[in-house]
């Protein structure tokens, strides 16, 4: 279970969210000018990244707002959460530093729920 920090509501369980696929796919300027192949690629073709991936999420049982997230598709680490419309933050160097401006306190970084709580009890 992921623990996702909603920019409005703070950390919540993954079950409260819905996934919105790859982020930063712009609607074509002139859809009528596209060939069928280009249109199909806009609609259906998505990256299948192994590693850090920018994706959209919506807090569907909370504030019902969309946001972007940089998530590692291998480790499930969440590197950054940032507002819709913002460019993808550069996280090539230090992870966990990013996170867009104007987010709620404590929003940017989260780890997976498995790693976060009760780790001291089991040891």
């Amino acid at each position: 279970m992921l623990l996702i920090s909603c920019p409005n509501c703070g950390p919540r369980d993954e079950t409260e969210f819905h996934y919105g696929g790859q982020a930063h796919i712009a609607y074509p300027e002139n859809p009528n000018d596209l060939t069928d192949r280009e249109w199909a690629e806009y609609l259906f073709y998505r990256e299948n990244t192994k590693g850090t991936f920018a994706e959209r999420w919506v807090h569907s049982t909370g504030c019902r707002q969309w946001f972007n997230m940089l998530r590692d598709t291998v480790s499930y680490d969440i590197h950054s959460i940032y507002a819709m419309g913002q460019p993808r933050p550069d996280t090539t160097g230090e992870y966990g530093q990013a996170g867009g401006a104007g987010l709620a306190p404590g929003a940017p970084t989260t780890s997976t729920a498995a790693a976060a709580p009760t780790s001291s009890e089991g040891v």
Binding site: D13, T15, E16, T61
Partner: peptide, 9 residues
């Protein structure tokens, strides 16, 4: 807060 109880919103 709006959240889930028993898996319902």
């Amino acid at each position: 807060v709006s959240t889930e109880l028993a898996h319902i919103p």
